[in-house]
């Protein structure tokens, strides 16, 4: 359903700061896949997500979503089909607007001049109650007053309120405390399963890289160096992952935030 063919991107080309963030990367994501992605610092994980969601246009290659070429489609148009969460909980919602207003914007129903209906408000409230974070009683409060975990859960809800075809999660629990992170991960899993969303998740937690999803990718220097799924993946341990990385990349996994175990 998502197909990247020979995609490359170099930042600051032709200068001393030139950096090849992706080189001839190809990837085929099947409908319903839940892919976890690990890699060292600067491996191009976020760049891959930026390319898919259209933050920049790639230098070479072709990106297709659902059989449609989206290589040159602007970001705001792609976001109808692609939902995205960042590590920083502050990025996904407007702090000066209320919970309800943020949700209304994400839901985007009605015409430009329509207002949020009672029915919609009720729907938002019910959905928020499912998060079990007390947000349903804070609908009229500015999002800036919420905690990081609450904001990330809200962002997740905003990203999936109109279920996207593809959900990109860029270490979306990394900035949260362990208990909240677990909660947000559980909500993520439920939403992805319930709505049958194809999902890609960058993580620095090797254990959740194996515990979640059906396929794991390892990236290094702008390429995918290891791609495992099915039975082979089921038998893997975190140590196997580290060894596989060393074997394929030629150096050890040097991610300053990597977690070998759940903390």
């Amino acid at each position: 359903m998502l197909k990247l063919t020979d995609v490359s991107k170099t930042f600051n080309p032709g200068t001393i700061n030139a950096k090849t963030a992706m080189s001839h990367l190809s990837l085929n994501v099947e409908d319903g896949d839940f892919i976890t992605i690990i890699g060292s610092n600067g491996a191009g994980k976020s760049t891959l997500f930026n390319a898919i969601s259209g933050v920049f246009f790639t230098d070479e290659g072709r990106i297709e979503l659902d059989g449609r070429d989206i290589t040159l489609m602007p970001e705001y148009k792609r976001s109808r089909k692609i939902g995205r969460l960042f590590q920083d909980p502050m990025l996904g919602s407007a702090p000066g607007m209320t919970v309800e207003e943020n949700l209304a914007l994400a839901a985007g129903s009605g015409t430009w001049l329509s207002r949020v209906s009672k029915k919609e408000k009720k729907h938002f409230r019910e959905k928020l109650a499912l998060l079990d974070m007390g947000l349903e009683d804070r609908m009229k409060q500015p999002v800036g007053l919420l905690s990081g975990g609450q904001r990330q859960a809200l962002t997740l809800m905003m990203a999936t309120i109109n279920p996207p075809k593809l959900l990109l999660l860029d270490e979306h629990t990394a900035a949260l405390d362990p208990a909240t992170a677990e909660k947000v991960l559980k909500i993520t899993k439920d939403v992805v399963n319930d709505e049958h969303i194809t999902c890609m998740m960058i993580t620095h937690n090797l254990e959740s890289a194996l515990a979640f999803g059906n396929r794991t990718l390892m990236m290094d220097k702008g390429s995918i160096i290891f791609d495992v799924s099915g039975e082979e993946r089921a038998g893997l341990t975190t140590d196997d992952l580290l060894q596989a990385f060393k074997r394929e990349a030629g150096h050890i996994l040097d991610n300053d935030r990597i977690l070998l175990k759940e903390d």
Partner: peptide, 19 residues
């Protein structure tokens, strides 16, 4: 709402498929 969000957090507006 979209205009207010544009001033508040433009990245979020783009990801809500608003230009």
């Amino acid at each position: 709402l979209a205009i207010r969000a544009t001033g508040n957090n433009p990245a979020m507006v783009k990801s809500s498929s608003i230009n």
